[in-house]
Structures are given as structure tokens and as C-alpha cells.
């Protein structure tokens, strides 16, 4: 089961840090994500694009998690050599994580 089936997501950038929100579609999805989509799991899935660390914030009222992923954007949007310097596409790397 991929995060994509349970949630939607958006990525933002500040300097060399990406933040990716994960927003559950319903209560059951929220329970699953809260338990299984740990900071460690996200750090592992992002290991080849971000050195980390990864901090996870919980927002139960919004049924959302917010992951703050440091050292993720090639030094930041102004200096990055990456095509997607903002890391806009990273929300779909998050949604591609398999929770099995």
C-alpha cells in the first residue's frame, strides 16, 4: 500500500530545506499514516536525494503530517544545480513510499 492511496501532499522550500505535507483522505488513512509513516521511513526513502535530518510534525486536527527534510535542495533554490531546484516534485516521492 502506497502513501498515494491514503493521502495527498505538497512540497515547499526554504533555503536548503524541503517540507512535505502529507494529508490523509479519511480517519482510517490518518491512523495508518500516523503509525507507519515515521520520520525514519521518510528519511530512508529520501536518502538518495536528502542528507537529512528529517523532523516529523503531527497535525491531528488537519489529519496531516508535516515532514521537514533538511539538506534536500542542493544548497537551496538559488544555488542548486538541480532542474527542480525548488523540490516541487518531492511531494510525489513521498506519495510513492510503500507502507508494507
Amino acid at each position: 500500500m502506497k502513501v498515494y492511496e491514503l493521502a495527498h501532499a505538497r512540497a515547499g522550500d526554504k533555503g536548503n530545506t524541503s517540507n512535505v505535507s502529507v494529508i490523509a483522505y479519511d480517519d482510517a488513512a490518518w491512523a495508518t499514516l500516523r503509525e507507519r509513516l515515521t520520520g525514519e521511513r521518510v528519511a530512508a526513502a529520501f536518502a538518495h536525494v536528502a542528507a537529512g535530518p528529517v523532523t516529523r510534525f503531527e497535525l491531528p486536527r488537519l489529519r496531516a503530517l508535516n515532514f521537514v527534510i533538511e539538506n534536500a535542495l542542493g544548497g537551496g533554490v538559488t544555488v542548486s544545480l538541480a532542474l527542480d531546484a525548488h523540490g516541487k516534485s518531492l511531494s510525489y516521492l513521498m506519495l510513492d513510499i510503500d507502507l508494507e
Binding site: 505538497r10 522550500d13 517540507n19 505535507s21 497535525l59 488537519l62 496531516a64 508535516n66
Partner: peptide, 12 residues
């Protein structure tokens, strides 16, 4: 609204 409120947010 949920996607945008968390956009470029660190500690909520």
C-alpha cells in the same frame, strides 16, 4: 486549504 496552510511551513 490544508495543502496550502502547510506550504513552506516548518514547525506549525
Amino acid at each position: 486549504c490544508k495543502e496550502q496552510i502547510l506550504y513552506e511551513m516548518h514547525d506549525p
